Amino acid sequence: MADTAIIDVDGTLVDSNYQHTLAWFRAFRRFDVVVPVWRIHRSIGMGGDQLVPELVGEDFAERHGEDAQEAWVEEFDRLIDEVEPFEGARELLRTLGERGFTVVLASSGKPQHVDRFLDLLDARELCAGWTTSADADATKPSPDLLLNALRKVGGTSGVAVGDSTWDALAAGRADMPSVAVRTGGFSPEELQEAGAVHVAESLPELIAALDSTPLGSPS
């Protein structure tokens, strides 16, 4: 059993995956590269360091990777006011804390974006800590971010909650069980194949089913 609940932010607590997808589409187009939107969506959940070479190749990443990530930030900043919390987001954080978990948010987002979402969720009082892109050398599906989040709050073992296949893969590589919600647009089969031990349609459904997941009670 885990003592720490490590919760993804984008696509899990806030409805931002499609804004991220559009921002990346526009960022790549600045370099005269058109990536089909559906392909970008399939990579959302990766950090930019992983997403750029995944979608447009190592050569582009070496030549333009940092500039492309800066362009993505600019494009996402234009869309961020459209991001809303998912129903049940604060309730999930509060419920896990009441059940005795140490709750930490594991985001690879830019610090200014994470701050914005913390305010949107009014989540600071519900969490023991959170991460940003500054807290890991390699982002999901690397396990670094999850392991650093666990260390950041002094946890001994974690269970991860996310919305993408990349969250589940990162949890597996961190030797943690993972629970998934479909809020990121991935199918139950994809999430389970990536390693999620439980898949819920929504956060309210997950909250109602906590006792049948690794989030039932802390160790």
Results as ranks from 00 to 15, higher is better:
residue 79 L to D: 12
residue 31 F to E: 07
residue 151 R to F: 03
residue 8 D to W: 05
residue 50 Q to Y: 05
residue 71 A to W: 04
residue 188 P to G: 04
residue 218 P to A: 01
residue 156 T to S: 13
residue 107 S to C: 11
residue 50 Q to W: 08
residue 14 V to I: 13
residue 61 A to W: 01
residue 158 G to P: 08
residue 45 G to L: 00
residue 107 S to M: 05
residue 10 D to V: 04
residue 57 G to E: 03
residue 97 G to F: 05
residue 22 L to A: 06
residue 173 R to K: 15
residue 115 D to Y: 02
residue 88 G to M: 00
residue 178 S to R: 11
residue 1 M to C: 12
residue 33 V to A: 10
residue 63 R to H: 09
residue 149 A to E: 02
residue 146 L to I: 03
residue 143 P to D: 05
residue 86 F to H: 06
residue 162 G to P: 02
residue 46 M to L: 09
residue 186 F to D: 08
residue 109 G to V: 01
residue 44 I to G: 02
residue 196 A to E: 01
residue 95 T to N: 03
residue 27 A to D: 09
residue 133 S to P: 04
residue 125 E to L: 07
residue 170 A to V: 08
residue 20 H to Q: 14
residue 40 I to N: 06
residue 48 G to R: 07
residue 108 S to G: 15
residue 3 D to Y: 00
residue 49 D to P: 02
residue 164 S to F: 00
residue 52 V to H: 07
residue 192 Q to L: 09
residue 198 H to N: 04
residue 174 A to H: 01
residue 49 D to C: 02
residue 52 V to N: 12
residue 105 L to S: 11
residue 147 L to W: 10
residue 217 S to V: 07
residue 178 S to I: 05
residue 176 M to E: 05
residue 39 R to P: 05
residue 6 I to V: 11
residue 185 G to K: 06
residue 80 I to H: 11
residue 168 A to T: 08
residue 94 R to G: 11
residue 158 G to E: 10
residue 31 F to A: 09
residue 87 E to M: 13
residue 74 E to S: 11
residue 146 L to Y: 08
residue 12 T to S: 10
residue 188 P to R: 10
residue 147 L to Y: 03
residue 182 R to D: 04
